[in-house]
Design a protein around this nucleic acid. Structure first.
Length: 351
DNA sequence: AATGCGGGGTG
DNA sequence: CACCCAGCATT
C-alpha cells in the first residue's frame, strides 16, 4: 500500500510558513532568534517534551513555568526529592512520566556530567525518552536530520497521502516519507510541522486554503480531509464502582495515604477506598463511626469510567496504619491526583 | 503487536 | 457526550 502524491512534501513551503506564523511558546526559540544563532536549552526542551507527551500545550504551559522556576537546571531537578517532583506534577496525569523525569535527570547528571546526549540514538536510552521525544530533542536542539513523528504528524501525513489504513498499520512508511523531506533546518521543520498540525490541519478543522502543503495534499484534492486519518475500531469503556472514605480527626485534619508504587496513579496520594468493581457492593468502613454519604464522584480514565460514592466521618486518631493526617489548608501541596481532589471537594474540603 | 496509563480542551 | 492531545514502558 505505497504512499503517493504528485508532489514531495515541500519542506521549504512549510518553513516559509513557520517563519511567519510560528507559535510563541515558553520553551521555544523563535525562528528569527534561531537564525541569529540562539540555541535552545536541551534541559528545557526535554522537560517540555516530556510534559507534552499525550498532553495539550494549554495544559502544559503553567506546569513548565513552575518547574523551570523551581528547578532551572538539570542539576537542580536531579537534586530535588522525588516526592516534591510528584507533588508538582500532580494534576498533569501519566505519573510514570514524573518518575522517569526525575530518573532521567539523575542519570544525565551522574553519567553525563549534566550534559544531555546530542544524538537521538543516545537520547532514546534515557528513562522516559522514546522514539518521538528522542527525535524531537535531537532535531530541535541539535538540528539532527531526523523524522519527528507525533500525533499531529500522523494526522497531517495521513491526510497528505489520503492513507487508507489506520496510521498504526503504516507508521514506518510515514516515517520514511517524512525522513526524506527533512531539510537543513531540522528543528524548525519539526516544530513547523507540529504547529501546522495544531493550527491549520487540526483534528476537526482543516484550513486547506491557507495550508503550505495543500498543493500536494491528496485528502484536500479529494475534498474531505476530515475523513483522515482512518480510525481503528474503538473499544468500549467499562464502568467500575466503589466507595471513598474521607476521615477527619477532632482537629479537622484529613487522613491520607500513598498508593502502591505500580499501576494506576502509582505512588500518588489518596484517601482510602474500597475495591473498584463492576457492581457496587456495600461499603466496608475503615473504622466504625458516624459515616455520612456525601455524594458521588465520576471520573473518566482512558480505559474505564469510575464512580465513587464519597463517605465522610469524624474518627478517633488511632486505629489507622501507614498514612498521615493533613491539614485542609495544606492539601494543595499534597501529591493528590485530580480524582482525589474531586473526592475531597465532594466531602466539603478544598482540593 | 497490544495494553495500561490522566486529565483537560474542544466541537 | 466523543474525540484527541509534541507517547512510553511493559508484556
Amino acid at each position: 500500500m505505497p504512499l503517493s502524491s504528485p508532489h514531495a512534501l515541500d519542506s521549504s513551503a512549510v518553513l516559509a510558513w513557520y517563519d511567519l506564523h510560528a507559535r510563541d511558546l515558553p520553551w521555544r526559540v523563535s525562528p528569527a532568534d534561531r537564525r541569529t544563532g540562539v540555541k535552545p536549552d536541551p534541559y528545557k526542551i526535554w522537560l517540555s517534551e516530556v510534559m507534552l507527551q499525550q498532553t495539550t500545550v494549554a495544559a502544559v504551559k503553567s506546569y513548565f513555568v513552575r518547574f523551570t522556576s523551581l528547578w532551572p537546571t538539570v542539576f537542580d531537578l536531579a537534586n530535588a526529592p522525588l516526592d516534591s517532583v510528584l507533588r508538582e506534577w500532580a494534576g498533569l496525569g501519566y505519573y510514570a512520566r514524573a518518575r522517569n523525569l526525575h530518573a532521567c535527570a539523575v542519570t544525565v547528571v551522574r553519567d553525563h556530567g549534566g550534559v544531555f546526549p546530542t544524538s537521538s540514538v543516545a537520547l532514546q536510552s534515557l528513562p522516559g525518552i522514546g522514539a518521538y521525544t528522542s527525535a524531537a530533542i535531537a532535531a530541535i536542539c541539535f538540528d539532527e536530520p531526523v523524522a519527528v513523528l507525533d500525533g499531529n504528524l500522523d494526522r497531517v501525513l495521513a491526510r497528505y497521502y489520503a492513507l487508507s489504513v489506520p496510521v498504526r498499520d503504516a507508521k514506518e512508511q510515514l516515517r520514511a516519507a517524512l525522513q526524506v523531506a527533512v531539510p537543513h533546518r531540522a528543528g524548525d521543520f519539526a516544530q513547523a510541522m507540529m504547529d501546522l498540525g495544531a493550527t491549520i490541519c487540526a483534528p476537526r478543522n482543516a484550513s486547506c486554503l491557507i495550508c503550505p502543503l495543500q498543493p500536494g495534499c491528496m485528502a484536500a484534492r479529494e475534498g474531505n480531509p476530515l475523513l483522515y486519518p482512518i480510525k481503528p475500531a474503538k473499544a468500549e469503556r467499562p464502568v467500575r464502582k466503589g466507595h471513598a472514605f474521607v476521615m477527619l480527626d477532632a482537629a479537622g485534619d484529613v487522613y491520607l495515604q500513598s498508593r502502591p508504587g505500580k499501576g494506576l496513579l502509582a505512588g500518588m496520594t489518596e484517601v482510602p477506598t474500597s475495591e473498584w468493581s463492576a457492581d457496587l457492593v456495600d461499603p466496608i468502613y475503615p473504622l466504625p463511626a458516624n459515616w455520612r454519604h456525601r455524594g458521588q464522584v465520576v471520573h473518566i480514565f482512558t480505559h474505564f469510567r469510575l464512580e465513587l460514592e464519597v463517605w465522610s466521618a469524624v474518627v478517633p486518631p488511632e486505629g489507622l496504619d501507614g498514612g498521615w493526617w493533613s491539614e485542609p489548608a495544606l492539601l494543595g501541596g499534597e501529591a493528590l491526583p485530580t480524582l482525589f481532589r474531586k473526592v475531597l471537594a465532594a466531602a466539603g474540603l478544598d482540593g
